[in-house]
Every structure is written in C-alpha cells, then in structure tokens.
Simulated assay, not measured.
Amino acid sequence: MLVCYLTDEPGKIPAIRAALEPQYPVVPRILGQEPIFAPSGVLMVDADLRQGERVDQIKHVMKDLDAIGERLFVVHRHLHHLVAQAYALGATGVVHSAKQAASKLTQVEAAMRAAESGREAGPAWMTDCGKAFAAMFSAIGNGKTIHLADAETVTSQIIASIDQNGLNGWLDNVRKYHEGTFQHCLLVTGIAVAFALDMNFPPQDVKRLGMAATLHDIGKARIPLAILDKPGRLDPDEEDIMKQHPVIGYDLLKDIPNISAETLDAVKHHHEYLDGSGYPDHLPGGQISDLVRLLTISDIFAALIESRPYRQPLSRQDAYKILCDMDGKLETPLVKAFRDVAMVA
C-alpha cells in the first residue's frame, strides 16, 4: 500500500520513512513546492495547522484529492482545535506520531483487504460522525451557530449502528478512530443509545436520549484549550472553569429553532446528582428529569472506561462497581437496569 506523504518540512521525511518503510512505501511531497498526485493507497498530511498559509495550501490540494478514500492527518500535539481543523480539512483519521501512523495504516490495510474480499469494509460512519462533531465544535469555536441537523444525523447514525451491530463494536471503533472530547461524546451517545435500546424504549425515546447525549458536552467548545487539552489533572481553578460547560452549552443552544426543552435541560443538568451535590444548580432529585438521570449514568460510565492522559481506562466491571457505589447520587433502579449494558460481553 503506497503512502503519499504531504509535509511542510523536508526534515520530517526521514522519520516517517523509518517508521513506515519497507512495509508501506512512502512517496514524499513538499506542500506548496511539488505537484501532488493521487495515490492508490493513502494520503498522509503532516503540516502545521496553526499556520493559516499552510491551511490554505492544504485546502487547495485537497480539492484535487477528494477521491482518495483514506486521508490521515498527523497532529503532533493533542490539541482539540487542531484535531477539529484536520477533520474540517477532510481527514478520515488523525494520528499523533509516526509510530501511531504505522499502527493506523495496518488497520486501514486490513479494512481495504476486507472490502476487496466482500466483507465489511470498516466504519465509514465513524468517520462521518467524527466529521460532524468536528464541524459542530469548530462552528462554535468560530462564533457560529451549529445546525441541529448535524446533531440529528450523528444521532441517527449511532442508533442505526448500535441497533445493527451492538455496543461492543461501537466502543472498540470509537477508541480506534477518535480521542479526547470527540471520543467522549461518541462514547456517551453510544452508551446512552444502547441503554435506551436495552430498556426497549420506543424509537422516538431512543432518539430523544441520543440527541441529549450528542449535544451534552457542546459547551466544551468554549472552554479554553489549555484546560480542555491539559495532559494532566485539572487544578481547582481549572476545575471551576470546566464546570461552566453545561451552562455554556445551554446558552449556545437555547435560541436554536426547534431544539427541545428536554434536550436543553439535559445539556444544562447532566452533572446534577439526586442528593443535590451536583452542578450547576444543585438540583434536588425531584427536579431532575428521567432523561437527565439516564444521561448522567451513561456520561459517568463513559468517562470511567475511556483513556485519559493521566490514567488508564477502567474495566467495565470496575466502572460499573463505581456506579453502584454512588447510591444516593444516582437512581439505584436505573443503575441496576444499566448492568446488562455495562457488563455485556
């Protein structure tokens, strides 16, 4: 499988060749200096996305390379806005190092072989979901209003995927193809949808919970990147800023036409606990809706099983035990009902 490596610095070429060759032959091209051809394999873009000139050059090049199925972007720093920029430019995947690129190419090659042999080609819907989240976060970061249709599309795709293939495959693919804020949003939505399906909710209620999950962390698009992308634990002042994201999300969404009051309630109150110890409004249990109770369980479980820079993910068994130990904060009957989702093999 041939790799067309498009970079802004010739000095990056030896490292990528050392990591990929001879298994994956690399054909390097310098952005803005050399003509780009459309390879039959994979396009890999490794350029500084913080520079407007580089972004403009990549936009120009990508117009002629839209037919290439796999477009990997190398983002050396785990920064949310750079990942969003990569997806906005047409990335189908993001890696952070030459070593990770080699691992990703192995997955891509396996998917291509599967497609050639008539098997499932891989999660194209996963790329679409990632792009939709990137578009929503990028729009907010640029002071624009998001389109509710983008959230509805993502939610419908996730519902269809989990209904057809189950939660396990969804969780595995989310971990492979996304990380950070996008990974968390995708995990929460998938888990919430699986919860609703397991409880035999009617389709309209599955979508209600799915939409709330899709949009629940949209306020993080306005949290300073130094906090959102911090590689370690937040200090108390940073934690206070992070805790503003539910109210920010509510304010961002409240004037969007046709958005439901229950979605807005879920966005604002998904960190509330039954004993009143949550935030931002310290609601007592009687004021917390059923939708929020379901979403909060899904949100906490997703956070526990996902990888963070400062800790390894918990096993699903350990994560579920923590939920069970939160008696008084979470609704115990719902936690018990969640067991089949949490512990499914």
Rank of each mutant, 00 (worst) to 15 (best):
F182G: 00
P10F: 12
D64V: 01
G169V: 15
A91Q: 00
L197F: 01
I300M: 06
Q157Y: 09
V26T: 10
M1V: 05
F195A: 09
G328V: 12
M211T: 11
A86C: 01
C324F: 10
A194E: 03
I248P: 00
D150Q: 14
R308D: 07
V206K: 09
A342I: 02
K104P: 00
L148P: 06
I297K: 13
E9C: 14
G93P: 01
D237L: 14
N165H: 14
N173C: 04
E238P: 08
K131M: 05
V108Q: 04
V247Y: 03
W170G: 11
V83C: 10
R233H: 05
H178W: 04
L82N: 06
P25G: 13
Q57R: 12
A266V: 07
G276C: 08
P236Y: 10
R233E: 07
F137A: 11
P14C: 03
R54V: 12
V42C: 06
C129P: 04
E306P: 05
L187M: 13
T296V: 08
A88E: 04
L323G: 01
P280M: 10
D205Q: 14
P35M: 10
G52M: 05
L186N: 00
I223W: 06
Q107F: 15
F133R: 12
I305H: 09
F301T: 12
M136E: 06
I297M: 11
I140G: 03
L82E: 11
Q107L: 15
K63M: 13
L79H: 02
M62V: 01
K268C: 02
A84P: 00
E239D: 08
H184I: 10
S315D: 11
V292K: 01
R71P: 00
A86E: 00
D198L: 07
A266R: 09
H282G: 11
K329Y: 10
A84W: 12
V154I: 15
P25D: 08
S138V: 02
S277K: 15
H60F: 06
D235A: 07
A18K: 15
I36V: 07
A101K: 03
H184W: 04
N200V: 06
V154D: 02
V45I: 05
I146R: 03
G219L: 07
E238K: 09
E262P: 02
S156T: 10
